[in-house]
Amino acid sequence: MATETKAPAASPAPATAAAIGEPAWARNLLIALGLGFIGLFLVLPLVAVFIEALSNGIGAYLAALHTPDTLAAIRLTLLVAAIAVPCNLVFGVIAAWAIAKFEFTGRSVLITFIDLPFSVSPVISGLVYVLLFGAHGWFGPWLVANNVQIIFAVPGIVLATIFVTFPFVARELIPLMQEQGTEEEEAALSLGANGWQTFWRVTLPNIKWGLLYGVLLSNARAMGEFGAVSVVSGHIRGLTNTMPLHVEILYNEYNFVGAFAVASLLALLALVTLVLKSLLEWRFGHELAVTRH
């Protein structure tokens, strides 16, 4: 989604910008408006998370994190991401191979289907699995009879997370691989490589940064998802509570330091994601689909 700004052109070069630039007051006003808006709506909430978390001092902060329920929530979040992200990674690469390297009818329909989870409310993303696997869902009676629990248990959380992170990798790789074309693969085959050799030695090295980019974004979403997971989790402390859900529980119990302490970890995750994402865009922008148009 992000687009790297090619900075040099932006500074008003004296000769041409004089002809088509805005007067200084307008420029400054627009910069002030833009930055003010970002400060008010983006920076301030971010800062608030850390200030609130540390409002009773660092000791209280660490103590708030060091509770069994919080640690269990962190463990569950890591587990869910560790399952969901690789699943979608494998899907993304395979789907992109079929869609980007071959021509077939119905290709654009397929791409639209892959994008579907992005246009569905997170709550609906959870709801659909309740409709399938919940006690009153399509497969509910069978699951109860066979003593398999999906909803209000970890499998449901994993499924909902896979759903909401479904498009990230595929969506980054499809345009990238489409743009790279099939000539290098054809060259590899004409030089005697078999299919696997072609994929591992030619295709994969060419898409590695795009792949990492997709994984980074889907990981951030997997760890931070709230709505979808909230619907299927059942909010059982210590068992089916992920970090974002734990924030809610603590907050509703008026344990603000605890809530913001967990929130601060998630905010740190977001910041690390943003930094890595920006680094990828700056360093390998030409090897990503998102930064090329």
Partner: peptide, 8 residues
């Protein structure tokens, strides 16, 4: 290949 298709 026309555009060489070198492995970049």
């Amino acid at each position: 290949f026309q555009h060489y298709a070198l492995f970049r």
